[in-house]
């Protein structure tokens, strides 16, 4: 900054030389105020999403930017184009950024052994492999070929599942398909509740 710039940046100079003689407006604006811009202006992209809470289906715009830590969500707010929500969000929808960026989110697989009193970490492929063995075991233990009259049941009562109302249709489709092929029938979600 040159000297004359430095002088011009002094509020009192601006107050006395500009129209803001009381120094309550233009002359008082700080450098930060003069350079201000919404952080959404820094977004690398804006993607279209839908609020994950209730079933109204409010549209959300997700502003994504990046820094040293990688990509991150800068802001989530309503999409005015939506004929459902017209860009508006309730307090939960408005808190969506905190939902997806908050420190409450777990990032690691955790495992609690039988009779254990603490969590321990487990790597993801190992956990999946362990789980697959257990699925087959529970399936076998609960298997029923036929009912009392000898009619085919071809199912297991050893495995149950609950959840789906917060998931995508595509996910529910695969859940139902896989469990059905496994012979598991106690597949349920919030719609029963």
């Amino acid at each position: 900054m040159g000297v004359s710039d430095w002088i011009r940046s002094w509020p009192v100079y601006r107050q006395l030389t500009g129209a803001d003689r009381l120094g309550r407006g233009d002359a008082a604006a700080s450098p930060q105020s003069r350079e201000r811009e919404p952080r959404t202006a820094d977004a690398d992209r804006v993607t279209a999403s839908v609020c994950p809470y209730c079933a109204v289906g409010c549209s959300q715009n997700v502003y994504v930017g990046s820094d040293d830590g990688g990509e991150r969500v800068l802001q989530i707010e309503g999409n005015p184009d939506s004929p459902i929500s017209r860009g508006r969000l309730c307090p939960k929808g408005s808190a969506s950024k905190q939902l997806v960026t908050g420190d409450h989110r777990e990032e690691r697989v955790l495992y609690r052994a039988p009779y254990g009193t603490e969590w321990q970490e487990l790597d993801l492929p190992t956990a999946l492999d362990m789980l697959a063995d257990r699925v087959l075991d529970a399936r076998r233990k609960g298997w029923q070929d036929t009912d009392a009259d000898g009619k085919p049941l071809r199912r297991t009562q050893g495995i149950a599942s609950l959840g789906g109302a917060t998931l995508d249709n595509e996910e529910n489709y695969l859940i139902k398909k896989l469990f059905t092929a496994l012979g598991a029938v106690q597949i349920e979600n919030q719609a029963r509740i």
Binding site: P11, R24, G25, A28, A29, S30, Q32, S33
Partner: peptide, 23 residues
Amino acid sequence: LDVCPTGALFRTEFGTVVVQDDI
């Protein structure tokens, strides 16, 4: 704004009143 001795509070071009946290 009127009582702020540091110029931290100011009137914006939109006619609104803002505290400048850098001041």
